[in-house]
């Protein structure tokens, strides 16, 4: 009996190889260099990236989001080279990445449902599925009043809308930037639990970036950016 062909490994949600990025020195500001040899995060997995303030966490996130371009190295999102000339980074960001911010950054003046629909506008998901997917996800996250404007929602509800928006486009990777910084410890735990639960359910990898040490016990994989990166500040 011939051996069964092994199924190809699914691509990593995030794969970083030999990344090197540098902010040039400017008057009054030292140059900053961030180098990462390798970092991988597979789908439906999670990682907490911790580091001190000013340690390059945000630079790292901007690189992963395709908002900054490294001098060397590569970043692949769901197997797609983010910085390949053929890659449309805006489209890739809309289709493959979800974002959760400390202050939620929901679109004011829009309803909860519309916040999700706006995200879907920039995704690859067919328009016919937008409404069902949005209402279903909002319902899963306990938002019944999808037509209420986000300003009218409680902080907890706004956070859940933000999580729903991050997941609505079926991203490969959800980037959470200090998602608990404005919450008390109890609500922080609830928010992280919610985020982890729904990312797992949607099959998305979760990369949480935080300087909050209280989150460390909640994650199986914790990376110290200082150890991960070859960070240098030159004065």
């Amino acid at each position: 009996m011939p051996p069964a062909a092994s199924a190809p490994n699914p691509p990593c949600a995030l794969s970083i190889q030999a990344l090197s990025f540098e902010y040039p020195a400017r008057t009054g500001t030292p140059s900053f260099h961030l180098g990462i040899d390798a970092f991988e995060l597979s789908r439906a997995s999670e990682c907490l990236l911790v580091g001190r303030s000013g340690g390059g966490k945000s630079t790292f996130l901007q690189l992963v989001a395709g908002l900054l371009e490294p001098q060397h190295g590569s970043i692949h999102i769901d197997g797609i080279d983010l910085f390949a000339p053929s890659t449309n980074r805006d489209l890739l960001r809309g289709a493959k990445l979800g974002f959760v911010f400390q202050t939620f950054n929901l679109l004011a003046g829009f309803s909860a449902l519309e916040n999700l629909l706006v995200a879907l506008m920039f995704s690859a998901i067919p328009k016919a599925e937008w409404m069902d997917r949005s209402t279903e996800l909002l319902a899963k996250l306990g938002i019944e009043s999808g037509h209420a404007r986000v300003e009218e929602l409680s902080v907890g509800q706004q956070q859940r809308v933000a999580i729903a928006r991050a997941l609505v486009c079926k991203p490969a990777l959800v980037l959470a930037d200090e998602p608990t910084a404005s919450l008390d410890p109890e609500n922080a735990r609830v928010a992280i639990a919610l985020l982890r639960e729904h990312c797992l359910a949607e099959g998305a990898a979760l990369l949480v970036v935080s300087h909050d040490p209280s989150l460390v016990p909640l994650f199986a994989r914790v990376e110290q950016l200082a150890l991960l990166a070859r960070e240098q500040v030159t004065r």
Binding site: A65, L67, N88, D90, L91, R93, G94, A95, F99, N105, L106, L107, A108, V118, A119, M121, F122, S123, R165, C169
Partner: peptide, 16 residues
């Protein structure tokens, strides 16, 4: 600008 930045993060191009 904040609204525009949100749109950009969600996938809107500069041209859009």
């Amino acid at each position: 600008r904040r609204q525009i930045a949100i749109l950009r993060v969600l996938g809107a191009s500069r041209a859009r």
